[in-house]
Computed example of a mutant assay.
Amino acid sequence: MTSIKLTFIIYGDMFNIDEFSEIINISPTDFAYKGDKLKFRVSTDTFWKYSFKDITSLYIGDSLKPLEKIVSPRIEEISSFIHKNNLKSIMRFKVETNKEPSPAIVFDNNIVKLLYKLNASIDLDLYIYD
C-alpha cells in the first residue's frame, strides 16, 4: 500500500498571508512571518502552508488533483501575487510505500506548466518499508 501526502508551501521574505489566503480562497494549515518563533527555531522566511489529506494511490499525480482544483481557477491571480512579492513555492510530497508495487512518479505537462506559473519546485521524500 502506498500513502502520499502533499504539502503546498508559498514562502519568501515578507508578504501578507491574509491577502494570499483570500486570493487562493483557502486558509493555511500553518503559517509564520519572518522572525516568528517556531517550536525549534526562528522562521527565516514568511510562509503559508497547506497540507492536504493523505491519499492511497500508486500515482503521485492523484495527490495533485485537489491542489489543481483549488489553484487552476485562480492561477493568474496567484501567479501574479507570487511574482509581485518575489516569492517561491514548493510542492512537498511524502510517499510511504511497501517494496512492491512501486509508486509511479510522473508529472504531466499541465503540472509542469502549473509549477512554472507558481515559481515552484518539487521536494519528494520516499520512504520504503518492509
Rank of each mutant, 00 (worst) to 15 (best):
K117F: 09
E76P: 01
F107L: 13
W48T: 04
L38M: 06
F107T: 02
T2Q: 07
K88C: 04
G61N: 13
Y59P: 04
K34R: 15
L118N: 02
Y116I: 08
K65W: 05
L87R: 13
L87V: 11
I78S: 01
E100N: 00
G12A: 11
L118T: 05
R74V: 04
Y129T: 11
N86A: 07
L67R: 15
Y33N: 15
K65Y: 03
Y129L: 03
R92T: 11
I17C: 09
F20E: 02
P103H: 04
I24S: 07
I24F: 06
I122E: 15
E77F: 07
K65F: 05
K53F: 03
L114V: 00
N16R: 15
P101F: 01
L126S: 07
I70M: 12
L126D: 03
D123C: 06
P28L: 10
K37M: 03
F40R: 13
V42R: 14
T46H: 08
I60H: 08
K39V: 00
L38R: 15
E96F: 11
I128Q: 06
F47I: 00
W48Y: 12
D125K: 10
S72R: 15
D36E: 03
F107W: 08
I105N: 12
D45V: 11
F47R: 06
L58C: 08
S51A: 09
L115F: 03
K37G: 09
S51G: 05
E100T: 11
G61W: 04
I55P: 10
K34L: 01
P28K: 11
N119Q: 04
I23K: 15
S57R: 14
I4E: 11
N109M: 00
S63W: 02
N109P: 00
V95E: 05
N25A: 12
K53L: 06
S89P: 15
K117C: 03
M91I: 01
L126A: 01
I128S: 02
S80V: 08
K37R: 13
L87T: 11
K39P: 07
G35A: 07
S89L: 11
F81L: 02
D13H: 14
I90C: 14
Y59A: 14
Y127E: 00
K99E: 06
D30T: 08
L118G: 03
I10C: 13
R92G: 01
F81Y: 12
D54G: 08
V106Q: 14
F8T: 04
K99F: 01
I78L: 05
P103F: 08
W48C: 02
E96K: 14
K88I: 05
N86W: 10
F93W: 11
D30Q: 09
V106D: 02
N25T: 10
D18M: 08
N98L: 09
A120S: 15
I4R: 03
R74Q: 05
F93I: 01
